[in-house]
């Protein structure tokens, strides 16, 4: 019997897993953004002396995981599972990282929602008694995502104003059954929501309804209201998506104005950094949560946070076939 499930889509953790360590690495552009002082590591060069962008992304993910282990004095042998994913075909970065680390590995693809997808599953593994230590980590890289989903780097084109900029960044979290740190109290798994947006240059609009759906269900499942949280943070809706999400939540009767923000909006200064609607990619919510939010929670500046990473489940083929873009969002409630 599913004793830990509440309502439609939420799971409550009677033995809440602790986030005992977090580490974030971002690229040079993100390192010039408004959050530059929060990240643990800023790369001077996003190639990191590797031969290919893919190898660089994998190295960045591996460094983040290794550093997060070091922070809590653990070694890969102490870790029961690694849950990780990225944006590339066949999870190239995560798989190669897992090869080098030698930790039992579940590869996850939730597009940009992978951070909360991995956090949710990691929490269930720990609360269920299947593991004591689990790593949840994701990465994205502008140059690898751009060539896979859009155009070559040197291809001349103008991005429309609704476009977003893939974040070069990686975040790794170590979850443990025992220890000190913020705890994950609830997760709300998201449904795939598709409102028929077909424009791959407007992913904020495609994902916003999924975020709203998950947030609304989280409130009704848990009985919590927006006031409970100090911060409700969506993954990478960008400026337009944030506006849409706010409108839709207001329509549903939730006033989130004072507590709502979006990682994609926070990470860049969209006017001076020419990022149009803001950041995107699974590295976006990963690096913002591991860098900024985790540290502010440790300082007790934030007590209750709802992280809702959002993903646009499109592929290059689905776009060419004219399919609409399905969105997904998973919510993770973190408290300290």
């Amino acid at each position: 019997m599913a004793v830990k499930k509440m309502g439609q889509q939420t799971i409550r953790f009677p033995l809440p897993p602790k986030i005992i360590s977090a580490y974030s690495i971002v690229g040079p552009k993100e390192g010039e953004g408004p959050l530059k002082d929060w990240f643990d590591e800023i790369l001077e060069d996003d190639m990191i002396k590797e031969k290919t962008w893919e190898k660089a992304e994998s190295k960045m993910l591996r460094s983040a995981i290794n550093a997060s282990l070091k922070n809590c004095q653990k070694t890969p042998e102490d870790i029961d599972f690694l849950l990780s994913g990225d944006l590339l075909n066949q999870l190239m970065s995560a798989s190669y990282t897992a090869r080098d680390l030698g930790i039992p590995f579940y590869g996850l693809y939730g597009a940009c929602s992978t951070m909360t997808e991995s956090l949710s599953l990691a929490s269930m593994l720990i609360d269920g008694g299947f593991a004591d230590h689990v790593i949840a980590a994701t990465s994205s890289h502008f140059s690898t995502a751009e060539r896979q989903y859009r155009f070559p780097l040197e291809h001349g084109n103008q991005k429309p104003p609704t476009a977003q900029w893939t974040v070069t960044g990686s975040g790794a979290l170590v979850l443990a059954s025992q220890g000190a740190g913020p705890v994950i109290t609830h997760i709300t798994a998201g449904k795939v929501v598709d409102f028929g947006v077909t424009d791959a240059n407007n992913m904020g609009a495609a994902m916003a309804p999924a975020a709203v759906d998950t947030i609304a269900i989280h409130f009704s499942d848990t009985g919590r209201s927006p006031d409970f949280y100090d911060l409700i943070l969506t993954g990478d809706l960008g400026q337009l998506g944030k506006q849409i999400a706010k409108d839709l939540l207001t329509e549903k009767g939730f006033n989130v104005e004072s507590v709502y923000n979006d990682c994609g909006v926070m990470i860049f200064d969209s006017i001076n950094q020419d990022t149009h609607c803001g950041g995107s990619g699974c590295g976006c919510s990963a690096s913002v949560f591991c860098g900024n939010i985790y540290k502010r929670m440790m300082k007790k500046e934030l007590k209750n946070v709802l992280l809702v990473s959002t993903g646009a489940l499109l592929s290059t083929i689905s776009t060419q076939q004219g399919e609409s873009i399905p969105g997904i969002a998973h919510a993770v409630a973190v408290s300290i």
Partner: peptide, 19 residues
Amino acid sequence: KNRMNQKYNYYVNNVAPKP
């Protein structure tokens, strides 16, 4: 669902920044 999608896309086009 179709009508809902149309309504949503219409709304998105209205709030989206224009070139």
